[in-house]
């Protein structure tokens, strides 16, 4: 079956670049502004720029939370990007402790090394920690563009797919079965980002 990508349009940031990036790698892509538009998708993308509580509020209010849980439960692939990756967690501590989608157990925490400039903005080396991650095999390395103040701390180390370093190692990518997330912006990371999106498109459930 030809992959069909649906990007969840839930009012958290501009999706034009992400849509363009999937189109660039030849994917059949649409922006879903209602949960019904997710139904035909084989691959769901949860993007997002903004705060965790607002993101969950929007997902819930627009009916995406239930749809995502059901479809991911059925085995559809999902890729969270930036805030979208964080929303996969059990909970986030931005502003107030807020429940997330809990598709990958863990908490979203703020960078807290003393004197560290937050947000973390810019290009940073990112390393694959396991065989066949979205970045390639363990040890595969590439440079991606990041903009974030919080990061995902998974409860289970087995869910860590990619790491980067900013005042200490942090988790840059998570993977657990059909659920994946990356903290950086592949749609702003040139060929490295496009290759990663292509690998996601080529994944099968």
């Amino acid at each position: 079956m030809k992959p069909k990508i649906a990007i969840i349009g839930y009012g958290m940031g501009n999706l034009a670049s992400l849509h363009n990036a999937f189109a660039k790698v030849g994917a059949d892509v649409c922006i879903a502004v209602t949960p019904a538009e997710l139904e035909p998708a084989t691959h769901i993308v949860l993007p997002g720029v903004g705060a965790f509580p607002q993101g969950m509020h929007q997902l819930r209010t627009l009916g995406f939370e239930d749809a995502v849980r059901r479809l991911v439960g059925q085995g559809r692939l999902i890729l969270g990007i930036c805030l979208g990756m964080q929303l996969l967690a059990t909970e986030g501590e931005e502003h107030e402790l807020t429940a997330g989608l809990n598709l990958i157990p863990g908490r979203v925490v703020r960078f807290n090394a003393p004197g560290l400039r937050v947000p973390h903005i810019g290009w940073n080396d990112t390393v694959s920690r396991r065989t066949g991650s979205l970045l390639g095999d363990a040890g595969a390395k590439d440079c991606f563009y990041y903009v974030h103040s919080y990061h995902f701390a998974p409860a289970d180390a087995a869910d860590v797919a990619l790491t980067s370093d900013y005042g200490g190692e942090f988790v840059a990518g998570v993977e657990r079965g059909n659920v994946m997330g990356v903290q950086f912006h592949p749609e702003k990371s040139h060929a490295a980002g496009l290759n990663l999106l292509k690998r996601f498109v080529e994944r099968t459930a």
Binding site: A113, P114, G115, L116, R117, H120, G122, W123, N124, D125, C143, D165, Y166, G167
Partner: peptide
């Protein structure tokens, strides 16, 4: 200011 690891941009 503590600025670890980030690539310097051109």
């Amino acid at each position: 200011m503590f600025l670890p690891m980030l690539k310097r941009r051109l």
